[in-house]
Amino acid sequence: MTERVGPKNYCLLAEFATTEEILHAAKSAYAHGFRRMEAYSPMPVEGLAESIGFERNRIPLVVFIGGVVGGSLGYLLQWYSAVVNYPLNIGGRPYHSWPSFIPITFETTVLMAAFAAVFGMLAMNGLPRPNQPIFGVERFALASQSRFFLSIKADDPLFDPNTTYQFLEGLNPYEINRVES
């Protein structure tokens, strides 16, 4: 990940105790104009992803393309080997016996779609990422247990170390941390 900001500010991290609070905070921040945000929660919170502006990602498209490519290549491979490269007479059937090509075509479709899903996901979300500055906040470990966090990244156009801090304070968080990289 490339950080366009200086080595100092990474983000401001606000901690909340309940789903209602994090939802309210996320919506307020979005309404205020912040876009480079991230919300952390120990369990799925209905509407949280939408509230910080997440609509959908391109994974389904990548998977679909992976499936189409896999299926086409699988079929082509069989056609090439059975019709062009090494034609065999099997029970007097035509060389291009499409019904017997279908199972393998299906398999390669699924295989490539799955590869596209996994590697496409890793390429798009930047994982694996063993460390990131936000781990420096000790209480952040609670994001996988009982607490909810909202971070506003320093590369947000509206970000300002002081006014953004004040804005977050207005949302009544349990605690605010300055995260520096």
Binding site: G91, R93, P99, S100, I102, P103
Partner: peptide, 9 residues
């Protein structure tokens, strides 16, 4: 069903 019966012929 089709594949099995078609293959057996």
């Amino acid at each position: 069903q089709f594949l099995i019966i078609w293959s057996g012929n």
